[in-house]
Design a binder for these strands. Sequence first.
DNA 1: ATCATGGATCAGATAAACTGATCCTTGCCG
DNA 2: CGGCAAGGATCAGTTTATCTGATCCATGAT
Lengths: 302, 302
Amino acid sequence: MRLPPLNSLRAFEAAARHRGYVGAAEELHVTRGAVSRHVKLLEDHLGVTLFKRLPKGLELTDHGRRFLPVLTEAFARIVSEAQRISRSGADLRIICPPTFSIRWLIPKLDRFRIDHPDIHIRLTTDFYGATGFDASEYDLGFAMDNRRKRPADIRSLPLLPTSVSPACSPRFLGEYGPFDEPSDLAGKTLLHENAGHEDWKAWLTRFNVEGVDPESGNTFPNLDMAVKAAVMGTGIVMGDLMLCQEELRAGTLVMPFEDMKCETDGWLCLIGREDRWSDPKVEAFKAWISEESAKDVADLVS
Amino acid sequence: MRLPPLNSLRAFEAAARHRGYVGAAEELHVTRGAVSRHVKLLEDHLGVTLFKRLPKGLELTDHGRRFLPVLTEAFARIVSEAQRISRSGADLRIICPPTFSIRWLIPKLDRFRIDHPDIHIRLTTDFYGATGFDASEYDLGFAMDNRRKRPADIRSLPLLPTSVSPACSPRFLGEYGPFDEPSDLAGKTLLHENAGHEDWKAWLTRFNVEGVDPESGNTFPNLDMAVKAAVMGTGIVMGDLMLCQEELRAGTLVMPFEDMKCETDGWLCLIGREDRWSDPKVEAFKAWISEESAKDVADLVS
DNA sequence: ATCATGGATCAGATAAACTGATCCTTGCCG
DNA sequence: CGGCAAGGATCAGTTTATCTGATCCATGAT
């Protein structure tokens, strides 16, 4: 059997709860003639009588008494799930790669929540996966390569330049240094933030360094872990100035070639769907993150 | 929150189960444009995206995955209850007073079930209650008084005459008899089938019996119990010829004034709603019960 | 490059749903 | 006992939801 006519079910359920058509009509914003007709339609469909028509209102028959709780519960569950979905749909869903999230975004998100208490953020800390940024799952994301061609319906907002330079602990420097020239790194343990080792390759190519094998060294799933390994003195990592500020300020990491920085992936960008790019919540986040980024860039320069 | 648009819920649920609009359109007997529009309507209503649109079909988003089981279960419950109600609504609902039911109708109902295996009967053994025959709860009933004015929408079919005469056990007769004249009953224990004692009053009036007090004796809630008490030898009951045939044939009851019978309430009638009086199931029952009644009347005469 | 498939959209058509009026029945009240 | 209020029943006419059929687009397979 197919579902009975759904609007008739709703009318019956409301009439049963109100014990009459007048209350049901008010609740459903229709006339009682409309409710009466829906109930009759449902009775014809089922081939049973659902109400006894009494002078002062309706009384459920056995069939009606059996049907009502099933409908009331079904509708209640549908409404409550729809409410939850609707409320959570109001969240701003953001995806951010692990190191940027842990080291740069999360530390400052509390300020966003304070500035915008009405905007709830659902942050996913993860890489995008094979298909890239999923605009049906997320409102906003972060991308490391502003210059790569994107789908036409994705907008981007440049935020931060990303400069990298080798970084190691003072102890590592003392033990294996000094590193006066990049070629001094030959034979030393390199720490990589990904399997392709692009972090080191780019820097070595940029400064024409010879004698250093970018294939050697230890690999980690993300920069955060590689940085921690460097702080422990196990090797030298290709550190990002923005993401390693805490260690650089604390002195737990030093950059031997501080004036030899290069960009690996261009600017960090905020990306999102074109059709929601002007959404008020998205606008609020864009304005806020731009301001925060400008501050961080200024701090880097001084 | 009000219920979301119900037809859109149904369209979404079907599309999710089929993982696409094409299958959902076939199931719902609409075009895939219609399904597409419903899903969009629901997404707008909830403010979330429910499907990722992929080249070879749809994939649920997190919101969609949350919503689908709630809807599938809700609809499944509604459909299964509607089916049960529809099937049971197909039953022929009959109400019969207790003694007629136990002693006359039930013993022969198996033959109806054999003759009409496709017609399911739901028999309620009870009196009608204060408001009389309830045409919204029952398709058919039995009434003892064919001549009383009935609502215009109730039809009736006369079945049996009801003749009554005093009946007692042989032992009671031997101990307190013989009863040659009705006045011989004076001072003997009368057994009544109802509080008003109309059973005896009618007979005594009919035959101008004096000296017998109809207010005396023991009262029972129905004739069946009164008859059992008579069989036990506790008194003399106003027995119905049709309903006491078993005891009369077995000799556990005798009728001292067998040729002095009277009608108390007219003919036993089958009653039902005018608008369903020609329903095929009702017609089948009418034909069958008429035939059975004619047989019983013939048996009484011979 | 072409074709098949599935989703997206929309103008126009169709059918569902509704309104507003009227009628009927019942119970209450003066 | 008559009048009134309240609630259910019905329906012609109106409005709105829903649908169709056509077209377009993107993707993957051949």
